Simulated scan of single mutants.
Amino acid sequence: MSSKSNHYQSKTAGVILAGGRATRMAYQDKGLVAYRDKALICYAIAALAPVVDQLIINANRNLNTYQHFGWPVVSDTTDSYDGPLAGVYAALLKTDADQLIVMPCDCPLIAANHVERLLQQQLSTQSILTVASDGTQLHPVFFAVRTGLRENLGEFLASGQRKVGDWLAQHSISRVDFSAEADIFTNLNTLNELAQLERAYSHIILK
C-alpha cells in the first residue's frame, strides 16, 4: 500500500494499459511480449504494485492469461479498440479510489520511484490531473487523475473523441519533470525497438 496515499488519507488505484491492437508489433498482445525473458506487463506491475492500494490491468485479449498475474482485469466497455482513454475509463468504472495512476504496458524502464514522484505531486498539489513530462513534451499515457473526472471522460468518449492530448487539454494539469531521466519513457512499438532496448541494457542485471 502506498505510504503517500495513506498519509494524505486518500486511496490510490493504478491501471496498466495493455488493451491495444499493437499493429506495429505484428498485432501481438504487447503486454505479453517478452523483454529480457519477462513479459512487459511484469515491469509495469513491479512499478505500480508497491505504490498503489489497488492495481487493475486493462486488456482486451488473452484475458485468462492476464488474470494469472494475480490482479483484476477489466476490458474496454466497447469492442472497437478506442485507444488508451477507453482503458482509463474502464478502470475508472471499476475503482472506488480517489485517484487513478495510469501507465502503459510498454515502458519497462518506468520504476516504482517514478510512480511515487507522480503520485506525490498529485497528492501534494491536489491536482485534477498530473502528467509526466520529459522537459520538452508531455507523456500523456503516464499520468494521475482524480476519479471525479469519470463522468467527464465518459462524455468525451461518447462524443466520438479519442485523443488523450485533446482530453488533457480540456483540464488544468500539473506537470512532473522527468527530464533528468527522460529515457524512462522509451516505449516499445515494434519488435526491432524491443531488440534495440535489450541490447542497450544487456549489461544491467535484473533484480
Rank of each mutant, 00 (worst) to 15 (best):
Q122G: 13
A39T: 05
D177F: 03
M103C: 04
L194A: 11
L100N: 00
L129T: 04
A144T: 00
G135W: 08
L197Q: 13
E193H: 14
A22F: 09
Q121R: 15
R24H: 13
A59I: 12
I184C: 05
I16P: 07
N60A: 12
V115A: 10
S3K: 12
D37P: 03
R24K: 15
G14Y: 01
L32Q: 11
T186I: 09
Q120E: 13
S2P: 05
G160L: 05
I110Y: 07
C107M: 14
R117N: 11
L188D: 08
I204V: 15
I16D: 09
G70D: 09
Y81C: 09
G165V: 04
K163Y: 11
R162C: 07
C107W: 06
A90R: 01
A86N: 11
L197G: 09
Y35K: 07
L149Y: 11
E181F: 07
Q9N: 15
G160Y: 02
L100K: 00
W71R: 06
V51N: 05
H171E: 11
A59W: 07
L153R: 02
Q28D: 11
K38V: 06
T190W: 02
E198K: 09
L48M: 15
L153K: 07
P72C: 08
D37Y: 09
G14K: 02
A112W: 05
Q121F: 02
K94E: 14
